[in-house]
């Protein structure tokens, strides 16, 4: 099991000496976050093999493993828990139907998330004439290391800022921040170029920083809309 750091910036800063540890009391945060399960362990490969051979309980174990994180990502994309749950269910049913076509050795998580993203795009297309759902009422955040740092108000501001991002940017950002995926993997899931994936994550982070740390960011950029991507060519 690998304990993954939470943040590429944290990675970059703390591991390359960009910021000295004395200047980063919040480094403890990254050490206290929950470990990220390594998706390519033997256990998972064996579950996939069994699922490909028609073992439904093996696929149930994969559902158990990925449901919560998939639902979480889909919720960030859709901003509606009902839709996110429906899409999660649809994703697993489609994945089961197509699991034999999954190539052993490739990234099951990325494959699953790509199916989920396709479902989301189809769902958005079919619902484009209907109005967007109102944001669901969020549970009160509990005390957490991050809340200690940002405070409840900070967490609420961050939640709102994430919800305000365009869904394409939100989806890319959360794949990076929550799933720790590389830009290449994000590009594969979202069916965009690696450059576009990098751009979306960058612009999303920049927007969040402009909302949350106005003291550290030029005020003129606070309300700037997200600029067009430099290259929207599909791979």
């Amino acid at each position: 099991m690998i304990v993954r750091d939470t943040h590429p910036v944290a990675d970059a800063m703390s591991q390359t000496g960009l910021v000295q540890s004395t200047l980063l009391p919040t480094d403890a945060v990254s050490q206290r976050v929950k470990p990220d399960p390594e998706p390519h362990d033997l256990d998972e490969a064996s579950l996939i093999d069994d699922a490909q051979a028609g073992d439904r309980s093996a696929f149930a174990a994969l559902i158990e493993r990925y449901w919560d994180r998939l639902y979480r990502w889909l919720y960030h994309l859709t901003r509606d828990p009902h839709t996110a749950e429906d899409l999660a269910q649809e994703t697993f049913l489609k994945a089961f139907a197509a699991v034999k076509s999954f190539r052993a050795g490739s990234n099951f998580r990325a494959w699953l998330f790509r199916i989920a993203h396709n479902n989301f795009v189809n769902q958005r297309r079919s619902n484009k004439r209907t109005r967007l759902p109102l944001p669901a009422e969020l549970p009160q955040p509990g005390e957490s290391p991050v809340e200690e740092l940002l405070g409840r108000e900070g967490i609420e501001r961050l939640s709102q800022a994430v919800r305000d991002l365009p869904s394409d940017y939100r989806g890319a950002l959360m794949l990076r921040a929550e799933e720790g995926l590389s830009f290449k993997q994000i590009a594969e899931i979202l069916n965009i170029t690696e450059q576009t994936a990098r751009w979306r994550v960058f612009k999303a982070r920049q927007k969040l920083m402009s909302v949350l740390t106005p003291d550290y960011f030029p005020a003129s950029q606070d309300d700037s809309p997200i600029e067009p991507e430099p290259n929207r060519n599909q791979p």
Partner: peptide, 8 residues
Amino acid sequence: AMEVESAL
């Protein structure tokens, strides 16, 4: 920036 990314 680190706090924001962790909080996500």
